[in-house]
Design a protein around this nucleic acid. Structure first.
Length: 479
RNA sequence: GCCCCCAUCGUCUAGUGGCCCAGGACGCGGCCCUCUCAAGGCCAAAACCGGGAUUCGAAUUCCCGUGGGGGCACCA
């Protein structure tokens, strides 16, 4: 039974990197009919961020990554919140001490003053402090005195530690260069480095999915697994997601969160789709996938090694693809909340508008600007009436408006078809290209060089009265 | 500074020794379609980091450079 987990810490929101890690974990589990679990890694109370937990739940729902086990869904491996598992970590840490694989350390916490650039480059020396030499009796005595202590992992002085990563292969480190990291802090909380090993084992996680930034701490985890005599899960270190210029994508450098991207007008399904292809490919030329399809075709073996650059442009295109694949009804429902109130107040046929703009919408946020002219005709210069391609000039436009306004005044019923037939007939009878006739109508209706929908569609949308009003106004500009 | 990872069009990528004078996608340019703009269709430009080695043959294997990235906390 495959079991994977998404293990965020409640210190921030879900940005694209986290999302992809969660997605891959989800896909690995679901592709193999396994279980996907959510575990909260809140082992650093100082870094807790208000609202982060809610954001995590909300983001998972948005993305459609439903977990089988989690804080609110017990699957028999709980609790799924690390701060509620403190006694467990303590017990295992002490077991390690008893085995000689860890030791009590009474050294004072070093102040990690994050000096700026000025700090000269002092070569890093792995942690090998004197406490590792303390005899168990001495340690116990000092403990009994109430001296504060942490538990550190004991690392062999010699030898190499090699682990196997499923996509990177074997990776080796010299033990002497590994630091004897803290397992249990003086406040009784475990460090992430310890808790993740304990929990992954206890929760029977089969595949650990995480970013490549963990590559260099993984040998220490391997040593921990060995110390306990446990089998290591399959390790899957995903390539980093970077900015297009190759620099690391971090929250500092504007990595958007899932929720922010949704606010920007992206569909969660498109974001998930796009992110799935950052460091993975299906081996076919298909690029547009639903979550369900991804579950079908996902294969860990096809995850890449090299970092992937996040491209807003391609995401935008993909979002457009997803929008176009929506049923008109589904699109309309989504579009509704993006229509400005000014438009809703007027009696526009919003469904008709939706049908017109669906194919032209790349982001839902485009909607506002695309249809603003409907509620209010923008200011425009007569020069908009001039267009080479449709052979429109100021004179032709004036002439056409003059002659078509009466025709349209008399037109009944006011439908797209009727308006189109009327104008096309006019064009043929007067020796105009259809485009030449349509251009001034469309222009007068919108004041714009480009609009979602053609002349007759706009006229239909605006209604007879408003259309004629705008047509006359356009004519006035030309006289 | 030390350790580790990575390296194909601007970007995402295919490619696991001959099918590759390197394929697809985004973006860019052009054409077609067309009641404007989109969408759609067609076409074009655009890459194997460098040097050695192995081999009849290397984008694909191995070394060495170079470049980029990551890590080095009582953070995750």
């Amino acid at each position: 039974m495959i079991r994977t987990r998404y293990a965020p810490s409640p210190t921030g929101f879900m940005h694209v990197g986290n999302l992809r890690t969660a997605l891959y974990a989800y896909l690995i589990a679901k592709h193999g009919n396994g279980k996907f679990l959510l575990r909260i890694e809140d082992t650093d109370s100082k870094r807790y961020v208000e609202g982060a937990l809610e954001a995590i739940y909300h983001s998972l729902i948005l993305a459609g990554l439903t977990y089988d086990e989690g804080p609110d869904k017990d699957g028999g491996f709980g609790p799924y919140v690390q701060s509620q598992r403190l006694p467990i970590y303590k017990r295992y840490a002490e077991e390690l001490v008893a085995k000689g694989e860890a030791y009590y350390c009474f050294c004072q916490k070093e102040d990690h003053v994050n000096e700026e650039e000025e700090e000269e480059e002092v070569p890093f020396v792995p942690e090998r402090n004197i406490c590792r030499l303390l005899s168990p009796q001495e340690a116990q005595a000092r403990l009994a005195d109430g001296e504060p202590a942490v538990i550190r992992q004991r690392i062999p002085d010699t030898g190499m530690t090699t682990y196997h990563d499923h996509i990177l292969g074997d990776i080796s480190f010299e033990n002497a260069l590994l630091d004897e990291q803290v397992l249990l802090k003086s406040d009784g909380y475990p460090t992430y480095n310890f808790a993740n090993v304990i929990d992954d084992h206890l929760m029977q996680i089969t595949h650990v999915v995480r970013g490549q930034e963990y590559i260099s701490s993984t040998p220490k985890y391997s040593l921990l697994y060995q110390a306990f005599g446990w089998q290591s899960p399959v390790l899957v270190h995903c390539p980093l997601i970077v900015n297009e210029d190759g620099t690391k994508m971090s929250k500092r450098k504007g990595a958007p969160t899932l929720e922010q991207m949704v606010e920007m007008g992206f569909l969660p399904a498109a974001i998930v789709n796009y992110v799935s292809l950052l460091g993975w490919n299906p081996g076919t030329t298909q690029e547009i996938f639903t979550l369900e399809e991804l579950v079908q075709v996902f294969n860990v073996d096809r995850i890449n090694k090299s970092p992937a650059g996040f491209s807003m442009e391609k995401l935008t295109w993909m979002n457009g693809e997803h929008i176009r694949r929506l049923s008109p009804e589904a699109f309309h429902e989504l579009a509704l909340s993006w229509y400005p109130d000014s438009l809703k107040k007027l009696k526009f046929d919003l469904e008709k508008i939706s049908r017109l703009i669906q194919v032209r919408t790349e982001r839902l946020s485009d909607i506002r600007t695309m249809i603003g002219f409907l509620a209010e005709l923008p200011e425009y210069e007569p020069s908009v009436f001039v267009n080479d391609k449709s052979k429109s000039t100021l004179e032709s436009s004036r002439k056409i408006l003059q002659k078509t306004i009466p025709l349209l005044e008399a037109l009944e019923p006011w439908t797209n078809e009727a308006i189109f037939t009327c104008l096309k007939t006019f064009a043929i009878e007067n020796g105009f290209k259809v485009g030449t006739v349509m251009w001034p109508i469309r222009t007068a209706c919108s004041g714009l060089e480009a609009t979602p929908g053609g002349a007759t569609e706009l006229a239909d949308l605006l209604g007879k009265e408003e259309t004629l009003k705008r047509l006359r106004l356009g004519l006035a500009k030309l006289q």
